[in-house]
């Protein structure tokens, strides 16, 4: 184990390497420590949580060490969600439960307990009292508009999408009605109409 002094003098890359070396979930992915595996493929592994919320609680992990969600590339995150779909389906079939919560905690404040990104799939039954329900608070149109404006720059950066202001929305709607046929049928009608 590195001493405090050694840690202080390490580069971020070296610290990351050290974290990986000591990451139990990396060890699980590499089959260096035993785990209860329910699914595995080239890029991911799904194991039972040994301290579960309920029996059948599954953790889906990328085999690569990512600490938090933003670090996970699109292709991998898409794959992990597809695995979650397969696992949720399997839980219904094999355990006779009636649903599942798919849960990701990003950051310690959100409940993230390990520095290795994971999705939880938690089997659910009626009245199981697992505290995962979401309250419904009220919010004013003004507050919603403020949030839209606040998020707009980073949404543009990450998704290449320009959030339309309320004023622009009408203009865009009009344009769409002219340029984009609603169904393939419209085009076919136009084409077949030419032969009458």
């Amino acid at each position: 184990m590195a001493t405090e002094d050694e840690l202080k003098n390490m580069s971020p890359e070296q610290v990351a390497e050290l974290q990986k070396e000591n990451c139990i979930f990396c060890h699980i992915s590499e089959h260096k420590v035993p785990a209860k595996i329910v699914h595995e493929d080239d890029s991911s592994i799904a194991v039972l949580d040994i301290n579960p919320a309920t029996r059948g609680h599954v953790l889906i992990l990328p085999k690569k060490h990512y600490q938090v969600m933003p670090q996970v590339p699109d292709r991998e995150i898409g794959h992990l969600f597809k695995v979650a779909k397969s696992v949720a389906h399997a839980l219904l079939k094999s355990l006779g439960v009636q649903g599942a919560t798919v849960f990701v905690a990003n950051g310690a404040l959100a409940g993230q307990k390990a520095p290795h990104f994971m999705l939880h799939v938690i089997p659910r039954v009626d009245k199981d009292k697992i505290p995962l329900s979401l309250p419904k608070k009220s919010i004013s149109p003004k507050e919603l508009q403020m949030i839209r404006e606040r998020l707009a720059p980073r949404i543009k950066h990450h998704l290449g999408y320009e959030i339309r202001s309320a004023g622009k929305a009408e203009a865009v709607k009009e344009k769409k009605a002219v340029d984009v046929p609603k169904k393939d049928g419209d085009i076919l009608d136009k084409v077949s109409g030419m032969f009458k």
Binding site: V102, F103, V104, R124, D128, S133, L134
Partner: peptide, 27 residues
Amino acid sequence: NKISTAIFESLNIGGTVVMIQNGTVAG
């Protein structure tokens, strides 16, 4: 993932949750 990142970068928050409630028993 991208929305979660955008929210995190836009607001002064400690983290985000991503959640699917699959079935009425899950809320």
